[in-house]
């Protein structure tokens, strides 16, 4: 158990009922400072409502929540928090610069600080050419970018990103990944809400699978167990002897025609495996390692009905 002060987020039995409908059943969660934490779950699983409760936008029906050691909703704590809402909307008559200045001032930042910070952030999210353009002329992706800049203005200790890559093209997604990496290096804690498994897999240290407003399972993405690698091999002329011999590296060996799927405990074993196959006379055309997919796990946990 981590000491409470080392936790960026801590909830106990957090529950929200809208009318008669349970949005979040009972969320109990601990996120350490400096972690990049992913919230995974199907649509309607209560991810956004949970984030809103942590930010004090939505009041919980019961349970407790703390962020950065203070009760959720504490006004002063918010000075250290950044938030990109799921559908970032803002006064569309403002220009990029005006929007960031306004938000900066709401954060209590001085004009002098903002004069440096605003252009730097615009540059970072690639909106410098659009600095004087009104937001009403922005595409969805550009809005997402300015929203992201807005969430990072105050160099927050804790950043909530609710579906940050929705509306972004591959270049934009790459940008979000790079920003998350940079923020982590700065020491920020990040809570990433996403239904894009690949995205979460690349960026997060740990994920929680959410179903019907409950954490079904949390998983380290970088622990030993997770370093298991599934390798897909396309090869001809593999003898059954060669196949049997693979069991020294892999507990599961699934041949399907020319394709062979094995699971090895570390990627460093792969050259050895390939050398072995070649030595046994196999014609190897293709070797594709892939991390154990979150997707399979996700479907297993959440169910193929998508939690609907």
């Amino acid at each position: 158990m981590t000491a409470a002060t080392d936790l960026a987020i801590r909830t106990r039995g957090l529950r929200k009922v809208f009318g008669g409908k349970v949005a979040v059943r009972s969320l109990t969660l601990e996120v350490a400072r400096g972690e990049v934490f992913g919230f995974l779950g199907p649509n309607g699983a209560g991810k956004s409502t949970s984030v809103k409760m942590l930010l004090g936008l939505v009041f919980p029906t019961s349970g407790e929540a703390q962020i950065l050691g203070h009760p959720a909703g504490n006004v002063r704590t918010r000075a250290k928090v950044g938030f990109l809402p799921e559908h970032f909307r803002f006064y569309d008559w403002l220009t990029s610069i005006e929007l960031l200045k306004l938000h900066g001032r709401l954060y209590g930042m001085s004009h002098a600080t903002l004069r440096q910070r605003v252009p730097a952030l615009l540059e970072m999210v690639g909106l410098t050419p659009h600095r004087d353009k009104q937001l009403k002329n922005f595409s969805k992706g550009m809005l997402q970018r300015i929203g992201l800049a807005q969430a990072l203005l105050n160099e927050p200790d804790l950043i909530f990103l609710d579906e940050p890559t929705s509306g972004l093209d591959p270049v934009g997604r790459r940008l979000v990944r790079d920003i998350i990496r940079a923020e982590r290096e700065r020491g920020a804690t990040i809570l990433l809400n996403s239904h894009l498994l690949g995205e979460v897999e690349i960026t997060c240290d740990r994920v929680a699978f959410i179903k019907e407003g409950e954490v079904v399972e949390t998983r380290e993405l970088h622990d030993e167990r997770e370093k298991q690698t599934t390798v897909s091999i396309r090869a001809a002329n593999i003898t059954s002897e060669a196949l049997n011999g693979l069991s020294q590296w892999s507990s599961t060996v699934r041949p399907e025609g020319e394709r062979l799927t094995i699971t090895i405990s570390s990627i460093s074993l792969l050259p050895e495996v390939v050398r072995y196959l070649v030595a046994k006379g196999a014609d190897v055309y293709e070797v594709t390692p892939r991390r154990l997919s979150l997707e399979e796990r996700f479907l297993e946990i959440v169910g193929t009905d998508g939690g609907l």
């Binding site: 936008l57 006004v75 002063r76 704590t77 938030f83 809402p85 909307r89 938000h103 709401l106 954060y107």
Partner: peptide, 14 residues
């Protein structure tokens, strides 16, 4: 309704 208030109400202002 539009959610515009969310980015404002999460700033350090009551």
């Amino acid at each position: 309704a539009s959610g515009t208030i969310q980015a404002i109400a999460t700033k350090p202002i009551s």
